[in-house]
Design a binder for these strands. Structure first.
Lengths: 144, 144
DNA sequence: TCCATTATTGAATATGATTATCAATATCAT
DNA sequence: ATGATATTGATAATCATATTCAATAATGGA
């Protein structure tokens, strides 16, 4: 129950879905790549490993991974969805460099608590949130 | 210097752009509508006031409004950009109801400070951020 | 005021990301 | 193995947004 491939396999079986080679390849490509990939990024990796894999399959599999809780969608500033690891990956926020695009994950329990408090104060049941801080990273700050 | 129409007019003159009826109509539609509109929302309003106004003009004008600082882009969860008032409108975050789509603006200086602190701790110069909290609002909680 | 210059418009077309269609193929329970 | 049916990949369809371009309108100057 702690192996992601197994979790995915169980999920497929339970739902009456099929365990295909493509799904495995895409899952592994996703797991190996740390970071915040777009569907295109994943397509390039997966298609590199197994030419023939198409965009459609990548998109479809990405949806499944979100459904099982292995991946999560993230919306940054450019109207393009990115996917990050969710399984055994605590919730976190993002620092995004507007120069080089680097993404750093951050977590601060004070912010988390304050958010819950604010939501409740306004009568909301908080379900999830996304905090992205945009700025210039240390390296880019040095250059010019 | 405190009238938005004037600010927009000055901006156009300075940039050598022209003050057209369409731009006025779209600006006014935007100003009258409180809330967080999509380009489509604005198109419907503007085109209602002056049939003939097309999507292209709405998109182009919205870009100008962002450039002058009258409007600001907001990215929620659905891959669609929304625009909110920026002029004399302090920075704030959002509570978004996942049932009815209602958006409430919130502000909490503790969260703001904590964010700046976090960014700096990681070597970032913070420039802007977006915090969206998704949940179920009071009204939707009651229904069913 | 009329003119000439040139920014702007709207319609149509293009783009980029994502989704749906569908015939051929692969998986899985029997 | 076999049959039922989920899945695949290619392609076409969508959706939001951007671009092109000929016709039109706004501006500054005569």
């Amino acid at each position: 129950m702690d192996n992601i491939e197994q979790i995915f396999g169980n999920f497929l079986r339970e739902k009456g879905l099929r365990h295909t080679e493509q799904r495995d390849i895409i899952l592994n490509a996703f797991l190996e790549a740390e970071g915040h990939l777009s569907a295109e990024d994943l397509y390039i990796i997966a298609n590199g490993k197994s030419p023939g894999i198409g965009y459609a399959t990548v998109y479809r599999t990405l949806k499944l991974l979100c459904k099982v809780g292995i991946a999560r969608e993230v919306y940054f500033d450019n109207g393009k969805v990115r996917y990050e690891h969710k399984y055994k990956h605590r919730h976190h926020d993002h620092l995004v460099c507007i120069r080089c695009g680097k993404v750093i994950e951050i977590f601060d329990s004070k912010i988390e608590e304050a958010q819950d408090r604010l939501a409740k104060k306004n009568g909301f049941i908080p379900i999830k949130h996304q905090l992205n801080i945009f700025g210039v990273c240390k390296e880019c700050r040095k250059k010019k």
